[in-house]
């Protein structure tokens, strides 16, 4: 429960779209199952006054917040408009935006995240599956049937690979405290270190699984910043080298970014790195 609990009120922005409406329904089914509040309002400009699966839709976030208590928004707005929507949420006073949307232009993402920060609003994603605290809260699109409640926290840059790991953990009787998909884009809001800082404060979490990918150095930065026992897995060991980004990429990142180098640096920090996804539950068991 690091980003909210069953009492958390949620807005879905882009509620009348196909994805938005479908997942609004699933989120509320989950809320009902755990006795939670769930989605209280939807927002789609121009569609105010409609309903989606029994939930009222408003033209703006401000309008929605006049009628409902919500601290959190889940975003399904298409890529070109999503940056603007994140800023709208932040300006209206929403504390957490979970941006599911993929293909947001990176300049929009950078601006929206910086603007949200000015308003004290945290952004998860974009291009992420969201957050799930089993038995408490589902924000986003994760398939809740694979999850079980327990003491392992999971942070991941990937969607389906997260489900894979969660599925393996659940089958082995290892429950999860909260699972956070931070998104696969080069620029994201909450990074490994931000999320780990929240897990550190969470009494339910006893161990961490960190699922990274090729590119950047946020895994190393995050893993080095926590005292929680942690196992990492990095996807992309067999990936061909990325297309070079001029000289600037090489100068800015040095040797960072490729999966093998990342694994080497993590091991250098004394962190256990699984070679295969199926090894993760065994290593986690050692921690519990």
């Amino acid at each position: 429960m690091i980003y909210g609990d069953r009492k958390t009120g949620v807005i879905v922005q882009g509620a009348t779209g196909q994805q938005g409406a479908f997942h609004l329904k699933l989120m509320n089914e989950y809320a009902k199952e755990v006795g939670g509040t769930g989605v209280v309002a939807g927002v789609t400009p121009g569609k105010g006054g409609q309903e989606v699966h029994g939930i009222p839709v408003y033209d703006s976030v401000r309008d929605a917040l006049l009628e409902h208590d919500a601290t959190t928004a889940v975003l399904f707005v298409p890529g070109g408009a999503a940056g603007d929507s994140i800023m709208e949420e932040a300006e209206a006073g929403v504390e957490l935006v979970v941006a599911i949307t993929e293909h947001i232009p990176v300049h929009d993402t950078m601006r929206a995240i910086a603007y949200a920060k000015l308003h004290g609003c945290a952004v998860i994603g974009p291009n992420c599956p969201g957050v799930l605290s089993p038995g408490e809260l589902k924000l986003g699109i994760m398939p809740s049937s694979l999850f079980s409640r327990g003491h392992v926290g999971v942070i991941s840059r990937s969607g389906t690979l997260t489900y894979e790991v969660v599925d393996e953990l659940t089958r082995r009787g290892i429950g999860q405290s909260t699972v956070v998909g931070i998104g696969g884009d080069p620029v994201i809001g909450q990074t490994f270190s931000d999320v780990l800082a929240r897990f550190e404060e969470d009494p339910a979490t006893k161990a961490m699984v960190l699922i990274g990918e090729v590119g950047g150095n946020l895994e190393e930065e995050g893993a080095g910043s926590t005292d929680l026992p942690l196992v990492a897995y990095i996807a992309g060991v067999s990936a061909p080298p990325e297309k070079r980004m001029g000289h600037a990429g090489a100068i800015a990142e040095g040797g960072e970014g490729d999966a093998k180098g990342k694994i080497r640096r993590l091991r250098g920090l004394g962190i256990r790195v699984a070679d295969r996804v199926s090894e993760i539950p065994d290593i986690v068991t050692d921690f519990l």
Binding site: T160, G236, R276, V277
Partner: peptide, 30 residues
């Protein structure tokens, strides 16, 4: 063929781990 870049990449990595070689990466998407 996998779904999601991460899971597909992990499948390729596993093929390499077992000393095989993949012909392609294909992520069918969500």
């Amino acid at each position: 063929i996998g779904n999601g870049a991460g899971l597909t990449m992990a499948t390729l990595d596993l093929i390499e781990y077992y000393k095989g070689s993949a012909a392609n990466f294909l992520d069918v998407g969500g």
